[in-house]
Design a protein around this nucleic acid. Structure first.
Lengths: 256, 256
DNA sequence: CTTAACTGTGTAAGCCGTCTACTATTTATC
DNA sequence: GATAAATAGTAGACGGCTTACACAGTTAAG
């Protein structure tokens, strides 16, 4: 579970309209809803869940308001009773997709590795998350993950700012690793892909090879032929390689 | 200059239609344009430049086809004489924005640092680049940057795959650093921002502090109050910190 | 119980975006 | 000069997000 929300939504003193769309909603702050009138036939969670399902099935572009509405059986515009804009919906969907952070071991290095790997798995399982623009600085699940990592890094004696920087480093690496895996799938994934996709990827590879060598970018062309892209069971991406480098670098800093 | 294109566009044997939109165009492969008919009043470069200018001024969303067309003084649909789709235009715009890679020093560490910093500067200067989805694996400027880095890393004796992984590590770090700088501007940038933006950012900070503490995420709340976010001349982001960690990690691997 | 206020939903319509015919015009080749 | 080809414009389809309005149902007050 995510850290529980306070009993009643805080009537924050700040002007909610000045916040980026979705920020207040993501934190569960809503303008005290009246109780008169018909009971809602659906809920915000239901809307967000429907949008998530569509994104899982066909990518984030499929999560349009008309399609979300059709999925839960209401008119498009009824959605505006639950979310105030498409942007807000996307923020809620993205926050939900983060899920809850894992419990981490004591050792800071093992904890950091697990944290990054879990994040990598999250992004790999829902690649469309990488397509949702970050329009809001921090959402609850987001903050919960960060809190978990900070808790594991604190014993190293690092300053708060350094811990934050480490979190960004690991987060960034997980994102990018998952992003790359999208257009450079492992051969196993490739075999599972349908023939059309296989032909398309082969065409891309061949095309690039021709172009690169024509421009005397042989070093790049050679790299593209490497096992990471061709071998049968690649050493699981550059993700693990990069993770080791990052952790080594942090270790050197901690022991300093 | 980018590596020169071959004298005449290669009539690659691969099926151009099987490639992602924009890939062939980005590499300058076009279906031999006839010379009959009226001379084009504009050019692909002019279209791409107009779109870039719009993105620079108001973000990538402003680079819509109607607005690009209006800027160069043609009807919206005339653009389809120069690019075959919006996706293709975005690919061309993004590739152009990468610009040419810097010349790198001999020492691999200094070279890697310079490469990453220059990339960071590129992304900081054009933050909308981070919003352009990567729909194509490799474009010419992209490849030129990669080639430059590989040339600098080769003397370390690393394998091709490891060099590629290092490039991803540095690229990822530059991207994310620039991304974070967007919604966590330095105080100097903040002072330059207009009053509306200043108030908005203050509201966000205050709101998050209340929410975080209400959910007992004090560790995160404390971190948010750190100098990186408040001090007058912050230690230029976590970018330099993370870069040092990454380079330390690579150094440990190289010396192994 | 009656009434009035309020809330959720549907319909209609606006605007903007991408993209596809079709037409008219201009230019190079024969 | 006649023909063929390529370009730019016009018109429009289609789908997306969003606002405005009317209707219906529910609840609170008298």
């Amino acid at each position: 579970m995510t850290p529980a929300a306070p009993d009643r939504p805080l009537a924050a003193e700040v002007d909610l309209d000045a916040l980026p769309p979705g920020l207040a909603a993501a934190w569960g702050v809503v303008e005290a809803e009246g109780r008169r009138g018909p009971k809602p036939a659906h809920s915000v969670d239901e809307v967000v869940e429907a949008a998530t399902a569509l994104a899982d099935e066909e990518g984030i572009a499929a999560a349009s308001l008309p399609r979300v509405a059709a999925r839960i059986g209401v008119s498009t515009n009824a959605l505006y009773r639950y979310v105030s804009s498409k942007d807000e919906l996307l923020v809620l969907v993205a926050d939900r997709a983060w899920g809850d952070p894992p419990a981490l071991p004591q050792d800071w290095r093992a904890a950091s590795a697990m944290w990054a790997r879990r994040l990598f798995e999250q992004f790999s399982a829902r690649p469309w998350l990488l397509d949702v623009p970050r329009t809001v600085p921090l959402t609850p699940h987001n903050a919960a993950w960060l809190d978990e990592l900070i808790g594991a890094l604190a014993p190293t004696g690092m300053g708060a700012q350094q811990m934050l920087n480490c979190a960004y480093l690991l987060d960034s690496h997980a994102r990018y690793g998952a992003d790359l895996r999208r257009d450079a799938p492992t051969p196993a994934e490739l075999r599972r892909a349908n023939p059309d996709q296989q032909r398309a990827m082969g065409a891309v590879r061949e095309f690039l090879d021709v172009q690169l060598r024509a421009r005397r970018l042989d070093a790049v062309a050679d790299v593209m032929q490497e096992p990471m892209f061709l071998a049968d069971e690649p050493p699981l991406d550059g993700f693990e390689f990069g993770l080791d480098r990052i952790l080594d670098g942090i270790a050197a800093y901690v022991e300093r």
